[in-house]
């Protein structure tokens, strides 16, 4: 135990401020305010891999590392769509995942925000539309915000999440 505490103390706090916002308020405060105004509580996210190469997943997982400290901003990944405010969907939506994605969407309560992550989620990316892929998340469920990139960086994904919360508020 002592080893662990020593290491925690030696590491210190590495969390970086959230990306610079356009206005003077800090993004963290704005993010929390928007989340509270829209949802009245913390934002919960259910991730759905709809045929991704796993690249986007790596960057979504990175959002949880101490540098980005997603939970510190009141955002949490949950294990069931029934507990989620927002779906974070990756992949060109393989035809084999369309039913699972649709069912996940149906199981998600309002406000049912959807963020499509990555070039594949936006347009099908390099996989395009084929016998096995549908060509993007919007071809299966309604999308609030699409975040391009292959894969998008953790900060880009975070911006997409914020944009979805803001868009629904407006």
């Amino acid at each position: 135990m002592l080893h662990i505490l020593r290491r925690i103390a030696a590491t210190g706090i590495v969390s970086e401020p959230l990306p610079e916002p356009a206005d003077e308020a800090t993004l963290a405060a704005r993010l929390q305010r928007d989340i509270l105004a829209t949802l009245g509580r913390a934002l919960t996210i259910r991730h759905v891999d709809a045929g991704s190469c796993n690249g986007c997943e790596l960057e979504i997982v990175a959002l949880g590392n101490p540098y980005y400290n997603l939970e510190g901003a009141g955002i949490r990944f949950v294990a069931s769509p029934r507990h989620a405010d927002l779906l974070l969907v990756t992949g060109p939506v393989s035809k084999h995942m369309t039913a699972a994605l649709q069912r996940t969407y149906d199981a998600t309560p309002e406000p049912k925000l959807v963020v499509a992550v990555g070039d594949c989620g936006c347009t099908g990316g390099i996989f395009g539309e084929s016998y096995a892929t549908t060509g993007g998340v919007a071809s299966v469920i309604p999308v609030d915000v699409a975040v391009p990139g292959c894969p998008p960086t953790p900060i880009d994904i975070l911006r997409g999440i914020l944009a979805a919360v803001n868009a629904r508020q407006a």
Partner: peptide
């Protein structure tokens, strides 16, 4: 579940695009 028709895709994409496709078969091993 994640079958994306990659082997077929290799035969229909221009060959200049093929290395990008190869690098996106498995993102953690790109």
């Amino acid at each position: 579940f994640t079958h994306k028709g990659i082997e077929k895709r290799f035969t229909t994409l221009p060959i200049a695009e093929a290395p990008r496709l190869a690098g996106r078969i498995c993102g953690d091993s790109t």
